[in-house]
Amino acid sequence: MTVVVGWTADARGRAALVQGAHVARLRGQELVVVNATTGTAVVDDRFAGASALEEVRRLLASLGVDAEVRQPVVRDVTEALLEVADEVRATVLVIGLRHRSPVGKLIMGSTAQRILLDARCPVLAVKAEEPAR
C-alpha cells in the first residue's frame, strides 16, 4: 500500500509532491516519488539534478515522510509512471497539472489526460499555485 507521486522539478511537480506527502502521512503509507525522463535531451529541466534532489529529501524529511525517490530513464514517461503505480500497488497516484490553451492541448497532447484514462488506481490531480494575473 503506497502513495505514488509523479514528480517533475518544477512548480507543479512540487505541488504534487507536497500533496502526496501529506496524503501518505495521513494514511500512514509509504511514499514513492517518480521523476522519470526520456533522456532524449542533453539537459532536461524537469529531471532533478543533485541539488534539486537534495532539496526534495530535506523537504520530505521536514514533513516527516519516509520516501523512495526513483529516477528512471525510459521510453515513455507516462507509461513508466503507471508501471510503478502497478508495481507497488499504489492506493493513489498524485500528479501535477499545468494550464493549457485549447491549441496547446490539440498539438501537444496531454500526459495528465492519458494518466487519468489509463491509471488503475485513483488519481489525485493538483494544480501548481499560479501567480496572480
Binding site: 525522463t37 533522456g39 532524449t40 542533453v42 539537459v43 539534478g49 543533485a50 541539488s51 530513464v73 521510453r75
Partner: peptide, 9 residues
Amino acid sequence: HLRRRPLEV
C-alpha cells in the same frame, strides 16, 4: 545510444 541521463547544466 539515444537515451542517457540528462546532465545538469
